[in-house]
């Protein structure tokens, strides 16, 4: 009986030793995967920054002005072409949610 117990113990130790090694190996594999994923994330982050820069370059005020005036033939309205809505008029506007509720 004692002999069987000893054998089991030795077997258990052997198993645990081997699984330790294999778990560590798996951990490293996973870690490498994580590193790879982080590298991809990093790469995407870099792309994002480049895209942001490109967007910023395309949407500068100077460029927008150039495109609207030259390409689209638009112009900034003359002061007489602008209708100003007074704040007091806005408050009475039936389209605004506050007055809509009171109308119901």
């Amino acid at each position: 009986m004692a002999r069987l117990g000893l054998l089991l113990l030795v077997g258990w130790f052997a198993y645990s030793a081997i699984s330790l090694v294999s778990v560590r190996y798996q951990q490293r594999l996973l870690y490498v995967d994580l590193g790879r994923a982080q590298a991809v994330e990093n790469e995407l982050g870099i792309d994002w920054r480049y895209l942001q820069l490109e967007r910023a370059k395309l949407t500068t005020n100077a460029r927008i002005q150039q495109v609207t005036t030259q390409k689209l033939n638009m112009q900034i309205p003359h002061i007489g072409q602008i209708i100003y809505i007074k704040d007091s008029e806005l408050a009475n506007n039936p389209a605004s949610p506050a007055t809509q509720q009171s109308n119901q």
């Binding site: 003359h78 072409q81 209708i83 100003y84 506007n93």
Partner: peptide, 16 residues
């Protein structure tokens, strides 16, 4: 808001 009278170029309609 302009504080000088301006010739309106558009017909202003007050929805109110």
């Amino acid at each position: 808001q302009p504080d000088l009278p301006v010739e309106p170029a558009l017909e202003a309609k007050n929805p109110n």
